[in-house]
């Protein structure tokens, strides 16, 4: 890499005076990447609630877990988390009920 390093060896490329600290980009809520697994979880959750279909509720919980696992730091706003929680609550409710019935 000596050929590459020629320029930097001659004089230090570093310029501390021009250093800017990192500014995290501002992301508006509309530009967030789509949370597919959360969406699927909600769909399954609704199906589970409407048709009392236990497997749906379980799938909803699994996708909910995936959605939470894939959450990014910057999306930690209350909205999404609460959605996931509502979904979880729904599905848990249904499962508990169905287990009781069985």
């Amino acid at each position: 890499m000596s050929s590459h390093g020629n320029a930097s060896a001659a004089n230090d490329p570093r310029q501390p005076s021009t250093a800017n600290p990192y500014v995290p980009p501002q992301i508006s809520p509309q530009d967030l990447p789509v949370d597919y697994s959360g969406f699927i979880a909600i769909l399954f959750g609704l199906f589970g609630v409407m048709f009392r279909y236990k497997l749906c509720s379980w799938l909803a919980i699994i996708f909910c877990a995936q959605s939470i696992a894939n959450m990014k730091n910057y999306e930690n706003d209350l909205k999404q988390v609460s959605m996931a929680m509502i979904c979880l609550e729904f599905t848990l409710h249904v499962i508990v009920q169905l287990v009781k019935l069985a």
Binding site: P16, N20, Y22
Partner: peptide, 30 residues
């Protein structure tokens, strides 16, 4: 001359944005 996402010398080098996304920032070069 500046490495890492925070201010100061002992700032963390990497910013963990998700479980599979990491960011590294450097600045202060011609």
């Amino acid at each position: 001359s500046l490495l890492g996402v925070g201010d100061g010398d002992d700032s963390p080098l990497l910013l963990k944005e998700g479980q599979n996304v990491f960011k590294f920032y450097a600045s202060g070069r011609r």
